[in-house]
Design a protein around this nucleic acid. Structure first.
Lengths: 307, 307
DNA sequence: TATGAATATGAGATATTCTCATGCTGGAAG
DNA sequence: CTTCCAGCATGAGAATATCTCATATTCATA
């Protein structure tokens, strides 16, 4: 019945004082407005305007519609502006999930920096330890997943952040501490401390132990990186962690790190996004600033070739 | 760009959870909704829905439009309901002007009674002493004019309220007080007290004195009927007033009334309305209740034949 | 009563929004 | 892994709706 178009017309007529002038402002013919009004009045069963006065006078019904127009049109227009910004990628939503336990360390500063540049983007962060983040990303519940485990999916693009080395943290007193590197078999008499997730999601198994069919003497879990570090420092076990997550402990000489294998185990950390979001300005910028911040902040990380 | 139709559609989709079900609720085909959405999304440059989930999921842009819909649609619908009532004459505006100074006496109770039955009708009352009420009625600034002077106009209908006699109020001591009636010449040695308006609008001139070319010895004016009555009672002059406006004074024997001419001067009081408003329910009812109330309240008034 | 500015109207062009028929897709079941 | 099914997309064309153009009508005014 009533449409936004009608509200726009009525408001223009009120401001202009005549159909003639209003038509000009709206870039249509006077005839168009006349027809439009006639049609609307016919369907309403009531006149909206008295045309024979100058300026035109609104009937009670007309005033009521005018009041609606004044109330509703600004909101509609504001929404349209917001949608334009959304479409242009100048604002939007960025729900991030991390699969990487240590990532809070650099992600929080990255989020803070981002928030300053894109205050209108709705930020959210969740840990993806208890659910599969990739389907959620594809479905749209998430907008970005920080992961080192790129599962091929044509709806998802993996933006590389940096390469890092997975190293073994050992206590200063550990016999392994002196080695330049260790072999998988060196862990068979050790207690391995891991995050409490399935083996398949732990790089130390998939990239180091499993290929050699090696198995640690025991496995215990710890939720948080500082807790793991403390346990290792106390000689209660060893743990495979990103080199950059251990910097503050090695710097204070609280523990030692040893390479896994002669060449080391290198991983790449990715920001996974839906392909359609790849070129969204704020997504791009988040990726770039995060990358930059990681290089500046984290020691021992490397650029990925071609990124 | 955005239209009410789109808001309705989005809200229906949200409630239904699918285009299929929403289409059914809106009594259109699923195809129509699909086309409509595609078109809108195309123009916005952004997706509103993710269709491949069940129920469908809204994108950030979709949620924004949905929020607009929830905010705007109820108001649009309420306005449409009000317009329907307006068109049906169940509500509206009743701006009344009176040309008749004494009419406040019965009009106020009439308005009070009316307000109870039609609380939604916007009532207003003004005195039409300083402007021409008929053009204002035709133009639409007024909706009803209470007058005893029906000026033929094809856009205006005169609804008769009652007939009354214009009588001469004189003091108890006046020599005229004993007469059954007076002639125009009897006033030539009297001071005539009138409302402060032009002669042409005073019935005592147009219907009694002017035809006989008679002229009072002096004319003085008084704004209000009680003031006029006091002056008359004090023997400071005579005044031509509706018989019903003098009842409370004659009952207390404060003054006397005398007929103007042998047959008396009879006038009809009308409620003038625009012809297109004639059959508006609340207009009709106002007329009828006012008429009824006048007969009950005012003594000495008569019905108009055929009303 | 003529005049001019504004609105109304009819006819036809144009644009839009629908329906119909049918193709496509993702998830569930075998 | 295929089949099926429910739901969405799409193309074509019908049905509407909305506009423009040309012109008539109306109203206030000189």
């Amino acid at each position: 019945m009533l449409e936004v178009r009608h509200l726009t017309t009525l408001l223009a007529i009120e401001e202009a004082g005549s159909l003639m002038e209003a038509a000009e402002r709206l870039h249509v013919t006077q005839s168009a407005l006349s027809h439009q009004l006639k049609d609307l009045e016919g369907r309403l069963g009531a006149a909206l305007l008295v045309r024979r006065t100058r300026p035109v006078r609104f009937t009670t019904a007309g005033l009521r519609v005018l009041a609606l127009a004044r109330e509703v049109l600004p909101r509609v227009q504001q929404t349209e502006r917001e949608l334009k910004r959304l479409a242009a990628g100048q604002t939007g939503r960025l729900h991030i999930a991390i699969e990487c336990h240590s990532c809070f360390q650099w992600l929080m500063p990255a989020l803070d920096a981002f928030r300053e540049h894109w205050p209108e983007v709705e930020l959210d962060l969740s840990a993806a330890f208890s659910f599969a983040p990739l389907p959620a990303l594809v479905r749209g519940d998430l907008d970005m997943v920080i992961t080192s485990d790129p599962v091929e999916n044509e709806a998802v693009k993996y933006l590389p952040l940096f390469r890092y080395e997975l190293v073994l943290a050992v206590s200063r007193q550990s016999p392994l501490a002196a080695s330049k590197w260790i072999e998988p078999e060196d862990i068979t008499d050790q207690t391995l401390i891991t995050y409490p997730v399935e083996r398949e999601r732990l790089d130390v198994f998939t990239a180091f132990l499993n290929p050699a069919n090696a198995e640690p003497a025991a496995i215990r879990t710890a939720e948080l990186t500082p807790m793991t570090a403390q346990l290792v420092a106390a000689g209660r076990g060893v743990a495979a962690l990103p080199n950059w997550a251990l910097t503050e402990y090695t710097e204070h000489d609280l523990l030692k790190t040893v390479r896994l294998g002669e060449k080391g185990v290198w991983r790449t950390l990715y920001a996974a996004v839906r392909v359609e979001d790849d070129h969204t300005p704020y997504m791009q910028e988040f990726w770039e600033t995060a990358k930059e911040l990681c290089f500046k902040t984290l020691s021992g990380v490397r650029a990925v070739k071609g990124s």
